[in-house]
């Protein structure tokens, strides 16, 4: 396992008192990735009429799970991924279970390959993520085809995968900053 990049200056011999406020603060910071997925999912299910809203729901969820499972699994445990996936299933209209299943697969790959992912560079990690996003989108497409009993166009799935891969660098920049600041339980 890879040691998480914590903030050493806060691990001094004299720890602050674990008051209720401090505990709540730490809990909220630790739950920040899950809250991010849930809030984005609910917001993107509103009728704003923006192009690609539904695809963005998938993209944001997969990107968030991949980043936090690879970098700080404590903030994104498997049960939280499952809960976020359920919320996503309720507030989306794709084939039931597909996104939930793929979020768990993404979590499994990222958390088990943490060591390897920390050794390779960002671009290589991004490529692996791209392959996962593409496979997940095609899995969704296959389920839709199976349910409709017809061969539908794979273009919407490709668009979803492209959107997911495209937003990942910006999101990971946000998460790198968040991991040090607002989503860091050690700073509570």
């Amino acid at each position: 396992m890879v040691a998480e990049k914590s903030t050493p200056h806060l691990h001094s011999a004299v720890e602050p008192n674990p008051t209720l406020k401090r505990r709540l603060d730490a809990l909220v910071r630790a739950a920040m990735p899950s809250l991010f997925i849930i809030i984005c999912t609910v917001l993107l299910s509103a009728p704003f009429g923006l192009p690609g809203q539904e695809e963005l729901q998938f993209g944001l969820a997969v990107s968030t799970v991949w980043f936090w499972a690879a970098n700080r699994p404590r903030s994104m445990p498997a049960i939280a991924v499952f809960f976020c996936g359920l919320v996503l299933e309720i507030f989306s209209s794709g084939p039931p279970g597909a996104v939930l299943f793929w979020l768990l697969v993404t979590y499994g790959v990222a958390s088990n390959w943490r060591y390897g992912l920390s050794q390779i560079g960002f671009v290589a990690g991004w490529l692996i993520f791209a392959a996962l996003a593409l496979t997940g989108s095609f899995f969704e497409w296959a389920l839709v085809c199976l349910h409709a009993f017809a061969l539908l166009s794979p273009v919407p799935s490709l668009f979803q995968a492209a959107l997911t891969v495209g937003i990942y660098p910006s999101l990971s920049a946000l998460f790198v900053w968040g991991r040090r600041t607002f989503a860091n339980p050690d700073q509570a």
Binding site: F82, P95, G97, A98, L100, F101, L104, L143, H147
Partner: peptide, 16 residues
């Protein structure tokens, strides 16, 4: 994780 994945597969089958 395997248990949760199995539940997800169950949901996929239920959806179909």
């Amino acid at each position: 994780l395997p248990v949760l994945i199995l539940l997800a597969v169950g949901l996929v089958l239920l959806g179909q």
